[in-house]
Amino acid sequence: MEGDIAQMGQFIGAGLAGIGSGAAAIGVGHVAGNFLAGALRNPSAAASQTATLFIGIAFAEALGIFSFLVALLLMFAV
């Protein structure tokens, strides 16, 4: 393990890519929080919008998954 600059770069890169997961978590929290705020304002319209909620969460989460994937690629595939 010692003295392997390339491996160090991989691990650092993987760690940096992991930040993206946290950013995606912020995004998902935004989506869910805003949905809840809107749903409490107008509960009668909430049920019809759950599909939109899940689509929004999925889009936000997909990008976090991408960064997670980049981390995994750096760790195991490069």
């Binding site: 889009f59 997909a62 998954i65 991408f66 994937l69």
Partner: peptide, 16 residues
């Protein structure tokens, strides 16, 4: 791409 990677990434991440 996003359609497939989302599913695969979620599954793999949890299990890993």
């Amino acid at each position: 791409v996003s359609h497939s990677v989302r599913l695969m990434g979620n599954m793999m991440a949890g299990h890993a």
